[in-house]
Design a protein around this nucleic acid. Structure first.
Lengths: 240, 240
DNA sequence: CGACGCTTTGACACAACTCAACAACCGTGG
DNA sequence: CCACGGTTGTTGAGTTGTGTCAAAGCGTCG
């Protein structure tokens, strides 16, 4: 069988060994792909469709809008991440979801997802495990915005991003692509775009990291970890 | 059979009708209760136990500590809420969990939880639904801290609290008990305790709400909703 | 009575926001 | 070819929201 393993499969297999049938089911889930242009909004908050998405390539973000026009970005899904699982259970999307670059996604119907959970409980557990990790990231994000200074939380953000990208093999050690502009970063970090700029300058001047031409370079990971209070993640366990 | 229905059962039955066997299983899950004194830390971040808790009575909070001693409160579980489901899947607690008042909790082992999910898939779905709602609340909290001013986010917090308490029948319309002091509120709202005090004064002076003697009174819900950008929740759907 | 936990207030400092302007870099079309 | 607007990044000056420090008031409880 010639199944190129998906990013999702890669991720889930750090949690548990996938049987052939499970791998096949996973590939099947992602068999229908959809190209979406940068800037397109795939899911609108409040929408009641029953679709979840699996991001295949490109960058996206999930966010909420406020009455005054402000925007808070919740997370940046990376290839292999699922989006909208929660919406499936709640029957209505609690946040919007946009493509930041051109992206490819697979869409999965709620009913299909449910059937998979029933037929392949182990796969269901693995997907829940991944969802739990995403949730833990949101919590860490909350802590960042609530209790870290602008420079700390910016540093923390890029360290976490670096780790996530390394996990799916999309980032070498010191450097990685990052198509996020300062407006987007501002909406994610709960800052103004102008202040993001100043913070990035500080990080550059202190020779900790740079963001230039959509490329992040980590200059001094150790010092960054201390500044951000960042705890590199323990390696993934295997299920008991 | 003389089963007093638990808060959890009440909550889940807004999502779906519970069969007798399911109700029994649910009661069984909560058959072992544990009293815990105010201030006690039940779960410590990083801990690797495989226990989840169901809060029966009292107030608690889940939070994370920072290297500099700061604390960010993630959520205030109310009676009927589950805590630590995520930790079960991740095999390690990603946050701490403390009792704020004297509380009663039921503890559930991971293996037991898994068995329930297998034997009563519908019950599993209901619990996941509840977990999804909790997750949505964390997201809303993130938005609050990231993009709302101190007074907006404080107003939003109490409106949400009011709605949650009404849902489990613990709050009349205008007034409810709230044992949270200004230090705790500060750690939840990402503010300093002193500023919380100033904000509460403003809310009082503008005749929107008061917090006095551990009792919250909503004076003008309509204006508060506008100020906070709060959207009262739509009624719960039943599963298809 | 004093000790303690919590609230309240004032004065001041500082982090982050706003406004305004400009520079660099595109791709487009005249 | 250059002019052009659009997007993104950069910087300065002034404002404001929130944090910090210090002190006092007020219950409750031992």
């Amino acid at each position: 069988m010639l199944l190129k393993t998906s990013h999702l499969a890669t991720k889930l297999s750090t949690f548990m060994q996938l049987s052939e049938r499970e791998a096949h089911c996973l590939a099947d889930l992602q068999s229908f792909s959809l190209s979406v242009n940068a800037g397109k909004e795939l899911v609108h908050e409040g929408q009641t469709g029953h679709l979840a998405y699996i991001l295949q390539t490109g960058w996206a973000c999930s966010f909420k809008l406020l009455p005054d026009g402000g925007r808070q970005i919740i997370a940046f899904p990376l290839p292999g991440d699922c989006v909208g699982l929660r919406s499936v259970l709640l029957h209505t999307a609690d946040h919007s979801f946009s493509a930041l670059t051109d992206v490819v996604v697979s869409s999965v119907e709620a009913s299909r997802m449910m059937r998979v959970f029933n037929e392949f409980p182990r796969l269901g557990a693995a997907i829940l495990w991944a969802a739990s990790r995403d949730e833990a990231m949101v919590v860490e994000h909350l802590v960042s915005i609530g209790r870290r200074s602008a420079i700390e939380r910016t540093a923390h953000f890029f360290l976490e991003l670096s780790e996530r990208l390394q996990l799916v093999g999309l980032a070498p050690d010191r450097e990685f692509d990052c198509p996020l502009n300062q407006y987007v970063l501002a909406d994610a970090l709960g800052l103004s775009a102008i202040h993001v700029n100043r913070v990035l300058r500080q990080l550059r001047e202190r020779k900790l990291m740079t963001l230039k031409d959509r490329k992040v370079t980590i200059l001094d990971r150790a010092k960054l970890n201390v500044l951000a209070g960042f705890q590199p993640q323990r390696a993934g366990h295997n299920q008991s």
